[in-house]
Design a binder for these strands. Structure first.
Lengths: 349, 349
DNA sequence: TTGTAGGCGTTATCAT
DNA sequence: ATGATAACGCCTACAA
């Protein structure tokens, strides 16, 4: 009697029942249990019923690690987002997860804190955890990552951005164009002195593209971009407030402050109030993303609406197709539009 | 030559290097590789250096599933939160993750959408994934869950609530007491006609406790609780707004509306503005949680401050101790305090 | 200090 | 339709 044949139900360890236990109890082989669970049609009705009943009775739950190890796939997809700390990605990610769930996959989230090295590490980590595919944000990242993905031929999509120059699967929107349109509108309101509060542009193509959009609009209006102050701070309400204060105490304060996202804009708005400036009477302020904050700030924020949920679901669908080898286009551009609320007005004077 | 001895580096599959590859390349056994990685001190300096170099060169990353399977532990702890959709749990969870990371563990997040059945399913799922412990929110849940946890003797802690009646590990605050204190303050401002907007109380001990706190304060002031309207809606700004509207169009509208959390309160606030009511001139509104929203709403919200980050870190520390068998108290109560901003004022008239 | 080899719980290939 | 059994990649007694 080899060691494998110790009684399955024995008390060596109090733990979950294994496939062996179920096989024993049902009087069939483990292969049949596995088939019943994964390819029910390949099993006779009678056996299937008996097996299922046993599974139920024992409360059997296949061990995930063993399954992933043996099958070399996990039914799991990973997502690495720059931060969980604010709501920028929350809605999109929620939709992403919902669609994934509908398709029978599970989501694993990790955060990179906007640090390329950390992102690379998280990729390694998720790969080691056996994810079948990866959702990444934006295009900029450590080259090692693309190489790892390549050599494993692991499907991935870059989201929250769209740029056909990059020849990879992606679903997102044109950050540059969106910001260009918004800036044109600002200029159309007579503003000639602008200020920009952006996220750090290094390692962040979205932030970079947004600023580029601003500059393009200014240029195409025949104006100079040389004297447009561009401040870079991490996304937070407090940083937005500080940056705004710095802009306003310059010798030639802007009449319109363009913020890289809604969080910064809300910070700027609060600081304006604190400084006794009326918005948009004295100064206009705009955001980007159209998260919940934008609607409830006062006055409500004029900003760029991003179809977060649509993007999340679309990304999930694409990823699933890539995993399952279904034929599909690789790139999806989603439209954005500017939502005019109350923080953008005519230039004063 | 048995089948195991196929050349490790062969091209059958282009994939990550395995421990065998590393062992071969370094000219040692797999056991030594494993030791070098997990118990470096049990290996000679020389070997360790050589192995590490090889690991580096090959970019070896241990397969997580295999590791978890063999070691019967994963270095992972799971958290099941009711929702990712709003910021209620974001800050606490972030802190939880940070502390976990400091202690060498990884976080796996799942969401139950406030549904007991789904929560049970997620527990099963996380267990199957080999988590070493679980973070749960509140005390109410499907009894199956406690049974599963028990039979696996899997460590867990209930957070976001503190109630010594429940004899389980937990770190949180006394929802009832917090709301009682707030309500007393409201009464002290002369309000006699109150209204409550709560989350659905079924399956949610925190919501239930909060409402109880309100009622207790009213009773202990010698007033009647019979005519206090209590509306139950899911947490969302829109629902808060609707519920508020409903309260105000009653024959005897409340002069103070107590909301179960900040999200509802912000919704109520917006609706008040829309109805042309001044806050707190015409009606007072209070929240709970003190999330970011509360500060930037206008006027800023009077609410109950919850030490989210402290709670998250404390929960992580406790969980790690439970996993590692360190001796520790099982229950931690954290203090809350009411932060008086601008939405609570004297009763009108 | 290092190596050998069995076992972790599945899946999947071959037989039957 | 079902059963044996060899992987999957790692850990860990037990030996040397």
């Amino acid at each position: 009697m080899d060691s494998k044949s110790s009684v399955p139900g024995d008390a060596r360890r109090r733990s979950q029942p294994t496939i062996d236990d179920v096989a024993d109890a049902a009087g069939v082989s483990t292969a049949t249990i596995s088939r019943t669970l994964n390819e029910p049609h390949r099993v006779s009705d009678k056996t299937r019923a008996r097996v299922m009943a046993t599974v139920e009775r024992l409360g059997y739950q296949p061990n995930f690690s063993a399954k992933a190890l043996a099958a070399n796939k996990s039914g799991t997809v990973g997502a690495i987002i720059p931060t969980m700390d604010n709501a920028i990605f929350a809605r999109g990610l929620q939709a992403f997860q919902e669609q994934l769930g509908d398709d029978g996959y599970t989501l694993l989230v990790a955060s990179s804190s906007y640090q390329p090295d950390l992102e690379a590490q998280q990729v390694r980590n998720l790969i080691a955890r056996g994810v079948d595919a990866l959702l990444l944000i934006g295009h900029d990242r450590h080259p090692d990552i693309y190489q790892m993905l390549q050599s494993r031929s692991l499907p991935f999509v870059n989201a929250w951005t769209f740029n056909p120059e990059h020849d990879v699967a992606s679903v997102g929107f044109d950050n540059r164009a969106a910001m260009r349109v918004l800036t044109k509108e600002i200029l159309a309101n007579g503003h000639r002195s602008l200020g920009v509060i952006s996220a750090p542009r290094q390692h962040n193509d979205r932030a970079r593209e947004r600023v580029e959009g601003v500059l393009e609009a200014i240029k195409s209006a025949g104006l100079s971009t040389g004297d447009v102050p561009i401040l870079e701070v991490n996304y937070s309400i407090g940083n937005g407030a500080e940056a705004f204060a710095e802009l306003m105490q310059r010798s030639q304060p802007p009449t319109a402050v363009i913020c890289g996202n809604d969080v910064l804009a809300v910070g700027a708005l609060g600081k304006a109030k604190q400084l006794g400036l009326s918005v948009p009477g004295d100064v206009s302020i705009t955001g980007f993303d159209d998260i919940e904050l934008a609607q409830i700030s006062s006055p409500p924020l004029t900003t760029v609406h991003v179809p977060h949920r649509k993007m999340g679901r679309q990304a999930a669908k694409l990823l699933v197709k890539l995993i399952e080898g279904t034929d599909t286009p690789l790139q999806f551009e989603l439209p954005t539009d500017i939502v005019s609320r109350e923080t953008l007005g005519k230039a004063p004077g």
